[in-house]
Structure formats: structure tokens, C-alpha cells
Amino acid sequence: MSSAYLLVSHGSRDPRPEISMQQLAGLVNHKLQKSISPPKSENLVGIACLEMSSQPLHEQIRTFAQSALAYGCNRLKIIPLFLLPGVHVMTDIPAEIALAQQALSQDIIIDLQPYLGSQPGLETLLTKQMAAIKTQAWILLAHGSRRPGSKQLVETRAANLGAVSAYWATSGSLESRVEELIAAGKREIAILPYFLFTGGITDAIARSVEELKLHFPSVTFQLAQPLGASAELADLIWELVSYT
């Protein structure tokens, strides 16, 4: 069964995440071409977004699926590039896939893959982000979700990394975690943004860290980078789709 692949992100008004998505799709497509013989000239890895697009996601899926079908593919794998199992992952994307499948012939089947944040190998990439920074304490800063139980993955991942968790959009804020660490005697604190790409939120996080430096001048703060469109992330995505 010949497959095409569609990487689905949240979407942003900031152009940088889309640029990173295009770069990541190119890296995944390179791995795909190395795995098939003979390689295809067509690009069988596309991108789509749930929000901030001129088309709803199901239309983006349908359009890409029709192109894939014309290239001889009879299966389309949808990979949600989300780090938390929030409403988008658990409800919105499956609903959009169902709408797209209804509009397509049964000559191509759409398969929803596990979301990126569920993959244990992601911790290896996060550890690499952390390795370049010497500090006394780490904060893993995620966006957060109000969906019940969605924080458990972040809590577990933070514990595995030797960090404490914080959330940008829900309770357990960065500022409160910093205050707790300072009260515990920590004077070197590093923050790891649990985000895929640089964008508006990571810019806001950087500004918040600068404010923390002013409020706590005796504490050294360092800010790591989000994961980014790296060859290592492409490897992880390829491992995810190659065994399903």
C-alpha cells in the first residue's frame, strides 16, 4: 500500500511556524524518498493547519488526498504535530478527517496517526536541548490545556527530564514556579519551552524571562530554544509513521 503523509499543525498568524513546517516536511520527504525504490519525483509529504487558514482542515486534507491519489497513493497518513492531547487532537482533527473521508472516494483511505507528543523518543530531543545549558533547576514550560487529564503527560515528561512543569495558558504559571524554586534556594533557573517552533508565544515567553531577570536580579535565568525543524525531529516523525 503506497502512502502519502500530511503534517497537521495548529496554525498561526506568525509566518515563522509555517516556514518551519515547510522545512520539516522537506526533511520527512527526504527520508521517504530514501525508503522507496525507485524514488518518486512528486512530493508526498504535505502540511496543513487546523486554524488560521483560508480553508478548513477537511478541505486541505481533501485537496492533498486527491493529489496523492493522482500520484498512485491509496493511503494518506495524518500526523498531528501537537505536543498535548487537548481538544484539537482528541476531537477537532478526527472530526475534520471524517468530513474529508466522506468527500473522497474509497480509493484512498485516511489514517490518523498518534500525535507527536505521545512519542517517548521526544524526550531524547528535549534532553538534547537541555544539554547545552548548565543550571541548578529546569522548568518545562508547556502551553497547557483545559481538557481533563491533558496535563498528566507534561507532568510525567517533566519528571523524566528532572524538571518542574509550568503552563503558559493555564494554572501553574511560569512566575509561580520560579517563585517556588527561588524559595527552595535555587539561584540558577533554566526554562525549556515545550513548543515545536519559534513564534508569537515563544517571543512572549522570552519577554517574560527578561521581566523575571529584572524582578529577581540575584537569580540567573536562561531560556532554551523550542524543538525546531531539525533532522532529529524528522527522524522521530518518520519512526512514528513507519510502524503504523
Rank of each mutant, 00 (worst) to 15 (best):
M52P: 01
V219N: 04
V154P: 09
P39N: 08
K128M: 11
L240D: 09
G46E: 09
G200A: 12
I93S: 00
S208D: 14
S12P: 03
I36C: 00
S145C: 05
A229W: 04
E180G: 12
I61M: 02
W168G: 04
C73D: 00
A4F: 04
Q152N: 14
S208R: 15
L161M: 12
T63Q: 15
G228R: 05
I61L: 08
Q113L: 15
A204D: 15
R146Y: 06
E51Q: 13
S150W: 03
G200F: 08
A95I: 05
T91K: 15
E59I: 14
L76T: 01
Q101C: 02
Q106D: 15
E179M: 14
M130W: 07
Y71C: 14
A98M: 08
D14L: 05
K128D: 13
E210I: 07
V209W: 08
S118N: 09
R13H: 12
I108Y: 00
N43Y: 07
L233P: 06
Y167M: 08
P94F: 06
E188D: 12
F197P: 00
L7A: 02
R75D: 04
Y115W: 11
V45I: 07
P56T: 02
I109E: 15
R157D: 12
V87A: 10
T127P: 02
H88R: 07
L181M: 12
P17C: 04
Q119G: 06
I133R: 06
L99Q: 13
I133F: 08
V241G: 08
E59F: 06
L196W: 02
H58L: 01
T202H: 04
V178P: 03
E123F: 04
G11W: 03
I93E: 00
E232C: 07
R147C: 07
E232A: 15
S208W: 04
K213F: 05
A231S: 15
S3C: 05
L196R: 00
Q106L: 13
L236S: 10
Q22S: 12
E155W: 11
Q129D: 04
R147A: 08
I19K: 15
T127N: 10
E179L: 12
P226I: 03
A95C: 10
A234S: 11
Q136N: 09
Q55E: 15
A100T: 02
T63K: 13
S171A: 13
R147L: 15
S173C: 06
F195Q: 03
L99D: 02
P148K: 09
M1S: 08
M21D: 02
